[in-house]
Design a protein around this nucleic acid. Structure first.
Length: 274
DNA sequence: TTAAATTCCTGTAAGC
DNA sequence: TGCTTACAGGAATTTA
């Protein structure tokens, strides 16, 4: 599923192709995928607009338009944002097509429809409660271990649950939460507030490492994730714990344990993580 | 205020 | 073989 590294890969791939292009028009074959504003307004808001920049905030793709609003895309679990030639056959579950002035199409496809499309300024979407107030970007140089420590200190939820909370840290999902906790040697079930400053520092470093390595490998295609060209990433072959329940830990050889935390399957090593 | 539970959704795979 | 059922999970919403 698309988390920070997968979204970052798509954004970096799309940027040079989209910036400067104009969205001629937009067609919605499944209008409820648009969450703000109403679908008709959404279509009018993007039509004729030039794309000024393509960025990312957490797991949100932000395509800023000449009208000073952004086309915001959240991929949910199975969302795909693809740049295709107009003659490319339309794939099943394609819910929105943005026609570009170079003849190409930006297509949004999402079988499970957990994703969403929005248009508006970041402030407007925040006020309309269509977007949460996201926490710091974990790969930004300005994000410090002390910030993470302070967040963990005030939370009584399991560590894993805090990592998944987009208001605590933006962009971490089930895969990289498990991966970074394993790297840090910390148990996902640990009550966040019991983590020492030293452990928080290790988790801070592990989060950065897990995310950066995954970006370098163009993300994890564990399920339906594909990049903007429809290609798979390589990180799924290098995951330490995610999806490996019952298989041996790469460090100690013991079988990895699976538990459910915050409604998510969580895999860790009982020997290596405390 | 925080945390846990529930809901949305379809493709896939396991089980009978 | 074909049907049923469980499972995958991001985040908004509801409940405690």
């Amino acid at each position: 599923m698309p988390e920070l590294p997968e979204v970052e890969t798509i954004v970096a791939d799309l940027r040079p192709h989209l910036v400067g292009r104009t969205i001629v028009r937009c067609e919605l074959s499944f209008p409820t995928i648009v969450r703000h504003p109403e679908p008709e307004e959404f279509i009018d808001a993007v039509a004729g607009m030039q794309i000024e920049s393509v960025g990312r905030r957490g797991k949100y793709i932000l395509i800023r338009l000449s009208s000073d609003v952004a086309l915001v895309v959240h991929l949910g679990m199975t969302g795909q944002l693809r740049l295709l030639d107009e003659v490319a056959p339309l794939e099943k579950h394609t819910h929105a097509v943005f026609f570009l002035d170079d003849g190409r199409q930006l297509r949004y496809r999402d079988p499970r429809r957990f994703g969403r499309l929005l248009v508006g300024s970041e402030e407007a979407l925040l006020i309309a409660k269509k977007m949460p107030r996201l926490g710091p970007e974990p790969i930004d140089a300005s994000w410090e271990a002390e910030q993470l420590y302070r967040e963990l200190r005030r939370r009584r939820a399991p560590l894993k649950a805090v990592l998944l909370d987009q208001r605590a840290i933006a962009g971490v999902g089930n895969i990289y939460a498990d991966e970074s906790l394993h790297r840090a040697g910390l148990r996902p079930t640990r009550v966040a507030s019991t983590v020492s400053r030293k452990s928080a520092r290790r988790l801070h470093e592990s989060l950065r490492e897990s995310l950066q390595v995954a970006i370098a490998n163009r993300g994890s295609s564990v399920d339906t994730y594909r990049d903007a060209w429809g290609e798979v990433g390589a990180q799924q072959e290098k995951l330490l714990v995610y999806g490996r329940a019952g298989e041996p830990c790469f460090t100690c050889g013991r079988p990895l344990t699976s538990v459910r935390i915050a409604g998510r399957t969580t895999v860790y090593c009982r020997r290596c993580q405390h």
